[in-house]
Simulated scan of single mutants.
Amino acid sequence: MAESTGVDRGIQSLIAARKSLKLSLEKSKAIGLALGKTGPRFEEIEQRLPLLEAAVRPIRADGEALKDVGGNINRAVGPAAAVLKVFDAVHGLEKSLLSDPKNDLSSYLSVLKRLEEALKFLGENCGLAIQWLEDIVEYLDDHHVADEKYLSNLKKSLRGLSEFHNDGGGVEEKERSQLRLDGGLRNAALDKLENEFRRLLKDNSVPLPMASPSSLGDQACIAPSQLPVTVIHKLQAILGRLRANNRLDKCISIYVEVRSSNVRASLQALDLDYLDISVSEFNDVQSIEGDSV
């Protein structure tokens, strides 16, 4: 009987120990889950610490430096903001300049002139804006009023902009720089003007009329032909813009080509087929005439 009682007590002790272990395991699991949820929060806090440190750094900076930094930043950002505004305006002209100039030549030329003025402004002020931004970044670095990593990224970006803008002083380098500013928009617009110049000449050129033989003797000749005044004004306006962009030579070639074609068509009325005789045939004729003499 005593042995039975001892066994029962042992079993009860084991059961109690089992329950205790089970509770301990459950608590351990709960603690593990809690730690698992807390881990990402610790990582988030760790990631935010550098930002907090950077935010606090200006408080530790020199008072005079903090007092002047706002005005210096505004003076540096002003030219850069103006450049960006003009750059956006350039892209705003794209739709108008990619249209056909024959629809409204006067407006097209006006928009092109605005583009030229904008590109001139960008060419003269991009370098200045970059220099001002570099100066303010150097000021922030010298007075320790900004995060070092942030300043490093700014310096890298400004260095890339400076190299992008200053790639040499030759003609080809300047042309490449202009292409980067407008994406080739000005060249595309000038090409359209050259095509319009050609179209105006072709559409208003007809074979030249023959003058009356009675008024000019027995020999027929080609009477002079003039372009309409409105067409001449349009051609002159186009030439003005092309001359301003050093594209006059192409217009001269177009004019010679179109007018020469018109003259060739006019000469067909003069019955000048004998001019098509080959050199060998011409020599044969000369030899025959010489023999007959």
Rank of each mutant, 00 (worst) to 15 (best):
D88K: 10
S266E: 07
I15T: 11
G183I: 10
L133Y: 00
G169M: 13
A55Y: 03
A188V: 05
E124P: 03
D291W: 05
R176N: 11
A189R: 01
L185I: 08
G183T: 01
H143P: 00
A220F: 06
T38G: 03
L275A: 08
I130W: 00
L133H: 00
L133V: 00
K120A: 05
G290I: 07
A265F: 08
E46Y: 07
D8A: 14
I288R: 15
P40N: 09
G169S: 15
E257S: 11
I238P: 00
V279A: 14
A269E: 08
K22Q: 13
D147I: 06
S266A: 15
N153W: 07
I238L: 09
P228A: 07
K250P: 00
L179V: 05
K22F: 09
G168D: 06
R264G: 02
A146F: 08
Y108R: 00
V7F: 13
A89P: 01
C251I: 10
A34Q: 06
Y255S: 05
Y139S: 01
Y108E: 02
L248Y: 04
L267V: 14
I277D: 13
L239I: 04
E281T: 08
Q12H: 08
L33S: 12
V137L: 08
G160Y: 09
S106G: 04
P209D: 14
A265W: 09
V145W: 01
T230A: 13
N103F: 11
S99Q: 10
K19N: 14
H165M: 06
T5N: 09
D167Y: 02
L98M: 10
G39H: 11
V279W: 07
L115P: 01
I232G: 01
Y274P: 01
R57W: 02
N187W: 03
R180Q: 10
E196D: 09
V137H: 02
T5Y: 06
E173Y: 03
H143V: 02
R259W: 04
E94R: 09
A54K: 12
L270K: 08
R264D: 09
R48E: 12
K19V: 07
M1D: 13
N103I: 13
D104F: 05
S20T: 04
V111C: 05
A65M: 09
G70N: 13
L154F: 11
